[in-house]
Amino acid sequence: MNASDNAVLSLSRVNKFFGGVHAVAEMTFSVEKGGLTGLIGPNGAGKTTIFNLVTGVYPIDSGEILFKGGSLVGRKSHDIIHLGIARTFQNLRLFHRSTVLENVMTACQHHHRYSFFEALSHLGRWKKEEKVISAKSLELLERVGLADRAYQAAGTLPYGYQRRLEIARALALEPELLLLDEPAAGMNPEEVQALNGLISDIHRDFSLTILVIEHHMDLVMEICPHIVCMNFGAKIAEGGPEEIQNHPEVLKAYLGEEVVDE
């Protein structure tokens, strides 16, 4: 598949080696603007590595990654984030001991800057901008259903809420492309259902492009019209839910493994 003009993110023939392990092999796919794409595959297929390559955590060994037509290769993580990409983490990387609100404010503050001397003196724009930052952050917490827990330490939230907080924090960066790394991991079926709704809602309301890694096949099948399936670092199938569900390679990859990991 060629990178169409409409692609927000496109990877072409991306390779990554860890020592002797070919972690990502000739990976090529693109994410349409405004799309909600699922990235699936068995454990260790290299899904998170794709996120790490896109966000500059690791350098790629060969290939090209384009975001809105510009190359991300060789850029530092923080630059990539400022271009309009945000992500969550499979193993949750919240600031556990800071409050829920402060976690979101830390991300939100990029869009409401004030000078160093205003920070040092609390004069000038400090008061106004801080007010905006905390109001916007509270609004986002409201969106993900955490407003009433804004002042407790993030680490004391139940697991499912911590995942929601990561989403709120990522949204605070005001991204165009949101990468969600197993947002439903460790959730019970009701929570997964609620999360489904949340992802669909934010996708619509924030006019986001979303790429989501998921293990829960039912979640992906339900919300993603476009799915990429990979195994052993390489793409094995791409298409709509129906197509993926009946694809022989996908069935082979998941056979012998529990399709649902609960």
């Binding site: 966000t55 955590v57 530092k76 993580s77 923080h78 984030i81 400022h82 992500r87 983490f89 990387r93 919240l94 600031f95 556990h96 001991r97 800071s98 830390t106 991300a107 990029h110 924090r169 960066l173």
Partner: peptide, 11 residues
């Protein structure tokens, strides 16, 4: 608290 998370939040 988490320098990896910090750089992936744009710092």
């Amino acid at each position: 608290d988490d320098h990896v998370a910090a750089s992936l939040l744009g710092f």
